[in-house]
Nucleic acid binder design. Sequence first.
RNA 1: CGGGAUGUGGCGUAGCCUGGUAGCGCGCUACACUGGGGGUGUAGAGGUCGCUGGUUCAAAUCCAGUCAUCCCGACCA
Length: 523
Amino acid sequence: MICWHPDVEYRFINFLLFSSIPMPKNAISPTRQKDYPEWYQQVVKAADLAENSPVRGCMIIKPWGYGIWENMQRVLDRMFKDTGHENAYFPVFIPKSFLEKEAEHVDGFAKECAVVTHHRLEPGPDGGLVPAGELEEPLIVRPTSETIIGDAFSRWVQSYRDLPLKINQWANVVRWEMRTRLFLRTAEFLWQEGHTAHATKQEALEETRMMLGVYADFAENVMAMPVIKGEKTAGERFPGADVTYSIEAMMQDRKALQAGTSHFLGQNFSKAQEIKFQDAEGGESFAWTTSWGVSTRLIGALIMSHSDDDGLVLPPRMAPRQVVILPIFKNDEEKAKVMEACKALDKELKTLQYHGYRVESFVDDRDLRGGEKKWYHVKRGVPIRVEIGPRDLEKGSVFVGRRDQPKSYGISQAEFVSTLTDTLDEIQNGLYERALAMRAEHTRSIKSWDKFEKFFTPKNKDQPEIHGGFAECYFVDCPETDEKLKPLKVTPRCIPLDQDNEEGYCVFTGQKTKVKGIFGKSY
RNA sequence: CGGGAUGUGGCGUAGCCUGGUAGCGCGCUACACUGGGGGUGUAGAGGUCGCUGGUUCAAAUCCAGUCAUCCCGACCA
């Protein structure tokens, strides 16, 4: 600068601050890189999925979030029925004595049970209401329903002809957690729990694995979320189960999320609750039972699998609405024409079928500024935005924005409609491929403790950056292994069902073994 | 339940150290301009500073207690 003058400098700074220098702008702050947990919270908020409730640890699921859950329910419910299950409903309250029957089960859940001790409120001395009418036997708000369903099963099952018994219920459960996060861990959550009883061990085991397969199929093909099917180690097993299987997914911060579990309960619950039957030979046997479940946690998994720094990204098969139509006009005259065209397109799109269901589209004709409206839908993860304005009407075209890519493009309306379901599939598959590539990039086969330790240690200890991932290691499931992992906050996620059966040495104990496990930090 | 922090209009916050009855941003309302993009301007509405008590002429500001929330641990879908 040749001559300096305060005013000049002021204008220069002003220019820098307010002129239209294009700055990379994201709808969500902070970004994933900067503060992943906070990013997650902001996405939930910006997409209007849920909010914290007046009751600590509980959440209010808002329409857009509940819409996702309804889609999950719809698809899963059909899958359950296709594999021979029926829905039923059991009470939210469980007599305390029921929970006491299975020792391991008690240990697992007692610490986090909500207990009902009274059945009435009376005016208190200070004007408020105080509980009165103490119950003779306290009731537990179900943390899971093995015990109360098992009790029913014990009455329903008499003969081998009553088996198998395959029941599912959609319900809410309560677990009084210390620390909660929307969708990932809440004190009350929605889920489905399947409970089955079988005449033979073999059949029960097959059921357990089949349902694990159903979950994996759903996660990968409907949620576009790649998962690893595997068995849980002893330390991670469901309280009271002989074998616990799970599907494990990698989130974008490279932490693992258990997305669904399927338990082989052996005869533990049937013996505790006397689920027994007379077999064909006239002898008396205990049934073999299973239980399996997924919860609203899947919504958390969905968010963290695909979303970006502009907010939620929904795979089309999960989106409550696949298409939003945005009318663009300047005056009433244009509005009339544009709205007519929008409604016609909306109607036409709704006649299309996508994976067995109607395509859901809607016209957003709210009186909002264009940009605001666009970002509203970007943040909510609507897969496809269609803009229609006067110019498009003349050309018979539409302007299309896809949530999975930054750029918009023009296309003839006829072509848009005829290729819509293909485009949706392209988005759906693209999201899966992207998540799969991300997981592959951060999965390592690790053979030494040194490398293992390094893999899971952040460079910056005070403000840990996103690091680690999945480590695939030979290991022996024993207390020594668990102890060694503790300081790293790494846990065995699962023992994958796919094993190559080659021999190696346990990374933690040095013992010879054929078993490989997946290790990671987890939610 | 251990360690740390916070509690001010719908949301986010300044003020608190050095007491003198609240300021800002976003949002909201109205109008105008603008209109393929989260724009601009003008005018408004909205709080007594978590709760209780104390110190003081005077407290959002100091003290005590209490409740709630958040973060870090132990526990967990």
